[in-house]
């Protein structure tokens, strides 16, 4: 495999890992599979477009602001919608997320039309290529994305292990009943999980938008990242990273050596394989399967 191909794999793996972490965050803490994640990522990208319009000469402010909006969006989704499904059948909650995804697709087109937007252009940034060793190059936005993925994972790891809210989130994820008995407010924990999830999704969406623009079909990437989360284990963060790598390798190898049309289906072939041989994923916990 040439070095350029390897670089492409790493970039794609980072995308899937970053987006995939959002699925894991919500699933691990509240056992809900958020199938609107791709659409929420897309909204995050559009939020950058909107904020960029207000602060075109101040990209850092715009980025931070847009990311914060992404965080608030997740909390809002929980408080307004998902909160009512806490305690109900998981499947009903998943169906609501599907419906939410459809709603968001419609809304984004109504607000921003089907036109393609380039927030990078709004900032006047040309996304120069970064030259790595031996003639290998990736775009700056891609490089930023890889770095962001590493930072996000480290941040999540630290906060899960060391902060009080992190302990609460892990407790609620393991045994919501016992957590409630011990005085943990589940609604607060779940809202935080949703907020973090859309925060990371928005980061991913924004960086993808800076790289290649945003338009209404961007949500597909979110759906393709789902197999990455599943392969690693829906309740394992390191699993999502590894899963992202596996799916990225499979996808790029398929495009390169077999058939470019396979690009959208390879992640799901990997998904089917893992469901056949190890449904709870590489690092996932087995009991999760029976709880559903």
């Amino acid at each position: 495999m040439s070095l350029q191909l390897l670089a492409n794999v790493i970039v794609l793996a980072a995308i899937y890992a970053l987006v995939g972490s959002g699925y894991v965050l919500i699933y691990r803490v509240s056992r809900v599979l958020n199938l609107a994640h791709g659409e929420l990522m897309m909204v995050g990208a559009y939020l950058l477009v909107a904020v960029a319009g207000v602060f075109p000469s101040n990209p850092p402010i715009a980025l931070v602001l847009a990311a914060l909006c992404g965080l608030l969006m997740g909390i809002a989704v929980y408080v307004v919608l998902m909160r009512w499904m806490t305690g109900e059948a998981v499947l009903a909650a998943v169906l609501i997320t599907i419906a939410l995804g459809i709603l968001l697709r419609g809304l984004t087109i109504l607000i921003w039309t089907t036109q393609e937007f380039y927030p990078g252009a709004i900032f006047g940034w040309r996304n120069p290529p970064v030259h790595l060793a031996r003639g290998v190059q990736i775009s700056s936005a891609s490089a930023a994305l890889v770095c962001m993925t590493i930072v996000v994972y480290l941040g999540l790891f630290v906060s899960f292990r060391l902060t009080r809210w992190g302990v609460r989130m892990r407790a609620a994820g393991q045994n919501p009943l016992l957590a409630e008995q011990r005085g943990i407010r589940l609604h607060g924990v779940y809202a935080l999980a949703w907020g973090l999830s859309t925060f990371t999704a928005s980061l991913a969406g924004m960086l993808l938008a800076l790289d290649a623009g945003v338009e209404s079909t961007m949500a597909t990437i979110g759906l393709k990242a789902f197999p990455a989360a599943l392969v690693g284990g829906l309740d394992s963060l390191p699993g999502a990273a590894l899963g992202g790598l596996i799916v990225a390798v499979a996808e790029i190898a398929a495009i390169q050596y077999v058939d470019p049309l396979l690009s959208d289906v390879v992640p799901f072939i990997v998904l089917l394989v893992i469901l056949a041989i190890r449904p709870w994923g590489l690092f996932g916990s087995r009991e999760q399967l029976d709880r559903v």
Binding site: W84, L100, I102, L103
Partner: peptide, 26 residues
């Protein structure tokens, strides 16, 4: 402006209806 993208109105409305049924009248 919305009239041009009726399919988007359709998506949004459909999403809302589905959510309403799932929440209120499962």
């Amino acid at each position: 402006r919305f009239g041009n993208v009726v399919f988007a109105v359709d998506y949004a409305a459909f999403g809302v209806v589905m959510i309403l049924f799932l929440l209120l009248e499962p």
